[in-house]
Simulated assay, not measured.
Amino acid sequence: MSMELFRENLSRNVTPIPSNETCAETVSEAMQRRYGDLRNAAKRVSRARGWSVKAFKNWFYGMNAPRMQDLIVLMADCPELEKKVGQMVEETRKCLQQSKL
């Protein structure tokens, strides 16, 4: 029992930096809500934004996270994604401030 408490205390001291997988999942969830009902979404959106269909599908299905410039475009087009990324930034900022050296 005390070992479990010790592990919990250790995990609280570790800065929770979002992993690439977490970022890809966050983008994917927002994109599916935004574009999921759009017929031929991958072709239509990628052509309109200058992305490859393969890149769009990778983001849509959470296989990869977009590059910064593409993420900014997605956030501009999807307020929900912008809000979620902002929350992730704030959570990380709070953890970093708590663990100042």
Rank of each mutant, 00 (worst) to 15 (best):
K84V: 15
A76V: 14
W59K: 02
N40L: 09
A42N: 05
Q69K: 15
K43W: 08
R34A: 15
D70V: 07
I17D: 11
R39Q: 11
E8L: 15
N58H: 12
A48F: 05
V89H: 10
L71K: 07
R33F: 06
R33Y: 01
S52H: 10
E8R: 06
G50A: 14
L5V: 11
A65Q: 03
G36M: 10
L74T: 03
M88L: 14
G36I: 06
N64L: 06
Q97D: 15
V53R: 00
I17H: 08
S99V: 14
M3L: 13
A42T: 08
S11H: 05
V89K: 14
F6Q: 14
L38N: 00
I17N: 02
V53A: 09
T92A: 05
N58G: 11
A65R: 02
Q97S: 04
P18T: 00
V45I: 11
S52R: 13
Q87A: 07
A24F: 02
V14H: 02
N13Y: 10
K94F: 05
R49H: 06
L74A: 02
M1S: 05
S28G: 01
S19V: 09
T22A: 09
R39A: 13
A55E: 10
S46F: 07
V73R: 14
N9K: 11
M1C: 01
T22K: 12
D77S: 08
Y35L: 01
L101Y: 05
L101E: 09
E25S: 02
K84F: 10
S46C: 07
T22I: 11
T26Q: 01
N58K: 05
V14R: 15
Q97I: 12
M31N: 01
R93V: 07
K54Q: 03
Q32N: 07
R39D: 15
I17Q: 06
E82D: 13
M75S: 15
A76N: 09
C95T: 05
G62R: 12
S28H: 11
D77Q: 14
R7L: 04
L96M: 12
L10M: 03
L81C: 01
N13C: 12
T26I: 06
V85S: 02
E80S: 09
F56R: 02
P18K: 06
L101I: 03
R49G: 00
G50R: 14
M75W: 06
V27A: 03
S19K: 03
D37E: 07
N64Y: 10
Q98L: 10
L10H: 06
V85G: 11
R34K: 14
F6D: 10
G62Y: 11
M1L: 09
V45A: 06
V89W: 07
Q32K: 04
S46W: 13
G50Y: 04
C23M: 11
E91D: 01
E90F: 09
G86A: 04
V89D: 01
T22D: 03
F60I: 04
V53L: 03
Q32H: 03
R93I: 08
M3D: 11
C95Y: 14
V53E: 13
A76E: 07
E90Y: 09
L38R: 13
M68R: 04
A42Y: 02
S2D: 07
V14K: 12
P66T: 03
A55L: 02
M68C: 10
V85A: 13
